[in-house]
Design a protein around this nucleic acid. Sequence first.
DNA 1: ACGCAGAGTGTGGGCCTTCT
DNA 2: AGAAGGCCCACACTCTGCGT
Length: 314
Amino acid sequence: MSKAKRLMDLMMTVNRKRKFTVKELAREFSVSSRTILRDLQELSELGVPLYSEVGPHGGYRVLKERILPPIAFSEEEAIAIFFAVHALRHYSSLPFETESSSALSKFYYYMPQDIQDRIDQMKNRVDFVTPIRQINSPYLSILLDAAIQQKVLLIEYESREKRSNREIQPIGIYTRNGLWYCPAYCFQSDEVRVFRCDRIHSVVHSALKPMDLRHIHLENRGSDSPTGQEDVTLYAELTKEGVQLCEAEPWPVPKLHIRQDGTGWLEGSISKRDILFFAKFFIGLGNEATVTHPPELLECIKINLTELMAKYDC
DNA sequence: ACGCAGAGTGTGGGCCTTCT
DNA sequence: AGAAGGCCCACACTCTGCGT
């Protein structure tokens, strides 16, 4: 086996084992302990975070931050990865902010000059625009970690109505329209709810026993709206212009249906808590939308419009 | 193009020290 | 005692430059 191949194999072996002795590796690779020792020194110089402990029960260990073996990318693949990471710069918060920035710098630094020039030329010609938000979501990495490790968190959350403490078990995090959301099982309301990450003011680990939610993830968690007795069915007819305006909205429920002539309708189950939000939304659409259901929403629209009329009735 | 000598590199082994 | 690690030497192989 050539030295280069052995070093590659060794890098993968030490990443897998995490703890090992020189003798153990020497047996595995059929070389002398002295050769393995030299190889480990080379890996260490290449940046593999190794440390050794002498004495009985000693040996080598790999630190937490493992290094992946070198991967060869084609020019087009490298440029695609560069711009995928580059697109994240519009987000004011990321769960791996430092890492994405350092990865981008590394990627750019090790590119050949002609590829760097090509990237520089492309930088101002292609972009993935996301609304720039001033608000930060500082707990993204903790929420993501809790979702992966199945941990319960105690959060201080500011909803539209009030600020309260809740114990939640995150399912995952996702971003939409520049904002971060965390669907999570809420132990207080006994259901899966979606929390705006920028409205979470503090996070600590809770002593509560976690639920077994391993089967639930972002793809199969259901709609953003909690289901239950507090739901009502919304139906609204849309003109062609109304359809275009609704297409820009991020929520999956109520669902937008489009007819061949360009008109359409919104239909779906919404929470009664969101009636006021949708009332204001449909007032904003003016004549481009006609709400027929639910009666609570119609009533709320009327009240809001009456208040608006009174405000401007000089 | 071929052969040769010398330099460089990789590897193995032995011996010893240091450390726990 | 048992592990890493430094130092030294020997051997095999590869690479490079040079002469023919």
